[in-house]
Lab assay of single mutants.
Amino acid sequence: IEKFKLLAEKVEEIVAKNARAEIDYSDAPDEFRDPLMDTLMTDPVRLPSGTVMDRSIILRHLLNSPTDPFNRQMLTESMLEPVPELKEQIQAWMREKQSSDH
């Protein structure tokens, strides 16, 4: 029984630690959010139409349809242009958020 109590305490400790580690990014500025999924972008790319999306989301879309989801023009992965300035701004915002939450 004592071992179970210790195990339960350890589990509670881990759960509390994980809860502290989770950071809420739901208040991200609109320009940091993917327009299709409304999630925080981690690897922004510009489509030929000028729309900026997260790379993982547009690549997932391209698996089903080789088109720009906003104007239905033909689109391939090679046409995606990285946006390193925005990526750095997002990373800086995330770092600031992490340091203010801890």
Rank of each mutant, 00 (worst) to 15 (best):
I1K: 10
D101S: 04
R95S: 12
V83I: 15
V11A: 11
Q91S: 03
K10Q: 11
K5R: 08
M74K: 11
E12A: 08
E12T: 09
R95Q: 11
R20W: 14
V15S: 10
K97D: 12
H61P: 00
K97Y: 13
D34N: 00
E2V: 07
Q91L: 10
K3H: 11
E9R: 11
N18M: 06
H61K: 04
A92E: 06
T67Y: 08
D54H: 01
I58M: 03
T76D: 06
D54E: 11
L47M: 04
T42Y: 03
K87R: 11
S56F: 03
E77G: 07
I57S: 14
Q91N: 07
Q91A: 03
G50A: 02
P29S: 04
S49P: 01
E2P: 02
K17I: 09
S100L: 04
E22V: 09
S100N: 11
N18K: 07
R72Q: 01
L47H: 00
M79I: 04
S100T: 07
W93T: 03
M74R: 10
T67L: 01
E22Q: 07
M94S: 03
E85K: 13
K87E: 09
E81K: 13
A19G: 10
M79F: 03
L36V: 15
I23A: 13
E88V: 10
I1V: 06
L7D: 03
V15P: 09
A19P: 09
L40G: 01
L6M: 11
H61R: 00
L6G: 12
I14R: 05
E88K: 09
E12S: 12
N71D: 02
K3N: 13
H102R: 11
D27V: 04
D101A: 07
T67N: 05
E22R: 07
S49C: 03
S26R: 08
L86Q: 04
S78G: 13
I1S: 14
R72H: 01
T39S: 06
M79L: 07
S56P: 07
T67A: 01
V15M: 09
K3Y: 04
D38H: 03
S100I: 14
D101G: 13
E81Y: 12
L63I: 12
E81A: 09
V15I: 13
E2H: 02
K10D: 08
E96A: 11
Q98M: 04
H102A: 07
M53I: 15
E12K: 11
P84T: 14
G50N: 01
L6V: 10
I57T: 15
A16R: 04
N71V: 02
M94R: 14
D30Y: 06
V83Q: 03
M94G: 13
R46S: 10
A16T: 09
E9K: 09
R72L: 01
E88A: 14
Q73R: 05
I90S: 01
P84S: 12
D30G: 08
E81V: 13
D34E: 01
H102F: 08
L36I: 15
V11G: 09
S78T: 07
Q73G: 02
L75V: 02
V45M: 03
D38A: 05
D38N: 03
I58V: 03
F70Y: 15
S100G: 13
A8E: 13
K97G: 15
V83A: 07
P82S: 15
K17T: 12
K17Q: 12
Q98P: 13
A16S: 11
L6S: 14
I14F: 15
Y25A: 11
T76G: 02
L6H: 09
K97S: 11
S49F: 15
K5T: 07
L40Q: 02
Q73H: 02
S99I: 09
M79K: 06
E22Y: 12
E85V: 13
A16G: 10
E22T: 10
I14A: 04
V11E: 12
K17R: 11
E31G: 09
E13H: 05
E31D: 11
E88D: 11
K10A: 08
I1M: 10
K3S: 04
L40R: 01
I1P: 00
R72G: 00
A28G: 13
D101H: 06
E85D: 10
E12Q: 14
E9W: 03
V11I: 05
Q91D: 11
R72S: 00
S26H: 12
D101V: 07
A8G: 12
E77N: 10
L80A: 06
A92V: 11
V11M: 11
R20Q: 14
S78A: 10
L6D: 09
P66L: 09
T76L: 10
S99C: 08
A8D: 10
I90V: 13
N64V: 03
P35S: 01
M94K: 10
R72Y: 01
I1T: 08
I23M: 13
L6Y: 12
A8V: 08
A19V: 11
A92C: 02
E96T: 15
R95G: 10
V83M: 08
M94V: 14
E81D: 10
D30K: 15
E88Q: 09
F4I: 10
E12G: 07
E96S: 09
L80M: 03
L47A: 09
Q89P: 02
S100H: 04
